[in-house]
Simulated assay, not measured.
Amino acid sequence: MSQLTKSRFEMIILDVPACRLKKWLYSASHLFSYPILWWCDERKPATTAPHEKLDGVLCSGMNDNELQWSLLIGLKNYQTRVHLEREYRFLSTKLEEIKRVECAKISLSKQKNISETKAYEWMRTQAMNERKKLVDIAESVLTEIK
Rank of each mutant, 00 (worst) to 15 (best):
S2M: 15
S2K: 13
S2I: 08
L4G: 11
L4K: 12
L4C: 09
K6Y: 14
K6F: 13
R8P: 09
F9R: 15
M11L: 14
I12Q: 08
I13A: 09
L14Y: 10
V16P: 04
V16S: 13
P17G: 10
C19R: 12
L21T: 01
K22G: 10
K22H: 15
K23S: 10
W24Y: 14
L25W: 07
Y26P: 04
S27P: 08
A28T: 06
S29G: 07
S29M: 05
L31D: 13
L31T: 12
F32H: 04
F32K: 03
Y34G: 00
Y34W: 06
Y34D: 00
Y34I: 01
Y34Q: 02
W39A: 09
W39F: 13
C40D: 03
C40A: 12
C40M: 04
R43V: 12
K44G: 09
K44P: 03
A46E: 13
T48H: 14
A49P: 00
P50E: 11
P50C: 13
H51N: 09
H51R: 03
H51T: 06
E52N: 09
L54Y: 01
G56N: 01
L58T: 00
L58H: 03
L58A: 01
C59T: 08
C59V: 05
S60T: 09
E66R: 04
L67T: 06
Q68S: 07
S70N: 02
L71P: 00
L72S: 11
I73C: 01
I73P: 00
G74L: 01
L75N: 02
K76N: 05
N77M: 03
N77K: 06
Y78I: 00
Q79V: 03
Q79S: 06
T80A: 06
T80C: 05
V82W: 01
L84W: 03
R86T: 02
F90V: 03
L91H: 00
S92M: 04
K94N: 06
K94M: 08
L95A: 08
E97M: 05
R100G: 01
R100D: 08
V101M: 04
E102N: 14
E102K: 10
C103S: 10
C103H: 13
C103W: 06
A104L: 08
A104K: 04
S107E: 15
L108H: 08
S109I: 02
K112I: 07
N113L: 09
N113V: 10
I114T: 15
S115K: 09
K118W: 13
K118T: 12
K118G: 14
A119M: 04
A119D: 01
Y120P: 04
Y120S: 12
E121A: 10
E121C: 15
E121T: 10
W122G: 07
M123I: 07
R124H: 15
Q126A: 10
A127N: 07
A127R: 04
M128T: 15
M128S: 15
E130Q: 11
K132H: 08
L134D: 04
L134F: 05
V135Y: 01
V135L: 02
D136S: 13
A138V: 02
S140G: 07
S140D: 12
V141H: 03
L142M: 11
L142K: 05
T143E: 12
E144D: 10
K146S: 15
K146G: 11
